[in-house]
């Protein structure tokens, strides 16, 4: 009777010819676990360092300065003046907000339409062309988009509105809208795709057309994700630097007109930081601009993430 042959030369787990303790796989495993944990902590470290160093370089302006917080909240941004240096953030905040609002007014509806088209209407073949193009747009460097704005869009805006210069908030807003679209479209599309198919089937079964289903069922169901997508896109807009530096015209004034030159917070930091002496009043003031920007983008991103996390599962 043939019994299944069992190998009797299996090494025992505690045999004496094991490698020394620090070369045993179990030890290596623990060690690597710790190394991985430490590398994962670098993300926290970097974020902490960013907040700490931007904050600590901004703090001297608020503490031992004759203008302090009051100087930031009142007056103009005029750091180059030899008689009356002023570091009022309001014109810069105004510029950033104006450009962001223009970009949002253009990008939000356009992205929503495009995301709806890609997720609900276009077939797989059409999407295999459309989606790489949207990804390509996300890949174009902002300085190239700014360069295009400078060379093509700004002259066009100048001609259409009959202005002396096309470098204004409108040109910048239009460019930024284009730059925000990939983020807005791809995350909105994900949100629409995550709406369960049963919703669409139920709607169609009740007699709704495809378009009615999209408008009254799919879009409302995907709204939280879409909102988050729009907030993330706006976060990208408000933090965008090179394109606005090249096409806003860089005039730090208080205005609500889209056809005026404005200056954003990001452009101010980029344009002026190269020319200030380290440790000067102006240097610290630019870090105050950075802190304002950091908080604005942080709030936008965190609210977007909170919405995403809350509504992630249906």
């Amino acid at each position: 009777m043939a019994t299944p042959s069992f190998p009797n030369n299996v090494p025992a787990l505690n045999s004496s010819n094991q490698p020394i303790w620090c070369l045993q796989p179990q030890f290596t495993d623990k060690l690597i676990g710790w190394i991985l944990k430490i590398t994962a902590l670098t993300s926290i470290l970097i974020v902490a360092l960013i907040f700490f160093y931007i904050g600590s370089e901004a703090a001297p302006f608020l503490s031992d300065n004759h203008m302090g917080l009051e100087g930031l909240l009142t007056g103009k941004w005029n750091p180059a003046s030899s008689v009356d240096k002023q570091y009022g953030l309001l014109p810069l905040v105004n510029g950033s907000l104006l450009v962001t609002i223009i970009a949002g007014l253009v990008a939000v509806p356009v992205s929503l339409a495009a995301a709806t088209y890609i997720a609900e209407i276009a077939g797989p073949t059409e999407n295999s062309i459309l989606k790489p193009i949207i990804e390509l747009l996300a890949g174009i460097p902002s300085v190239v988009i700014g360069f295009f704005g400078l060379m093509v869009l700004a002259p066009a805006v100048k001609a259409v509105f009959g202005l002396p210069s096309g470098l204004n908030a409108l040109s910048a807003g239009l460019l930024l809208a284009l730059m925000a679209m990939p983020t807005m479209i791809s995350i909105s599309e994900d949100a629409l795709r995550s709406v369960p198919n049963a919703f669409r089937e139920a709607s169609v079964a009740l007699g709704a057309s495809k378009i009615e289903t999209i408008f009254f069922v799919v879009l409302p169901a995907g709204l939280p994700g879409i909102t988050a997508a729009m907030l993330l896109g706006l976060g990208r807009v408000i933090g965008e630097t090179m394109a606005v530096l090249m096409v806003t015209g860089n005039a730090p004034i208080l205005t609500l007109s889209p056809l005026e030159s404005v200056r954003t917070m990001t452009a101010t930091v980029a344009a002026e930081m190269g020319e200030v002496p380290f440790g000067s009043e102006h240097y610290h003031a630019l870090f105050c601009v950075g802190v304002t920007l950091l908080f604005a983008t942080f709030l936008l991103n965190m609210s977007a993430q909170a919405i995403l996390r809350r509504f992630q599962t249906h």
Binding site: A40, L41, S43, I44, I46, V47, A48, L49, I50, Y53, I54, S56, E57, L232, G235, I238, G239, E240, T241, T266, V269, A270, M273, L286, F287, G290, L293, L294, T297, F298, L300, N301, M302, Q305
Partner: peptide
């Protein structure tokens, strides 16, 4: 850790420049 990765992803590029300058 996950929160800090999301935060890092949202920090505007010019602020990385400011941080790099200071640090």
């Amino acid at each position: 850790i996950q929160l800090s990765i999301l935060t890092l992803a949202g920090v505007p590029s010019i602020l990385f420049g400011l941080f790099g300058l200071a640090f």
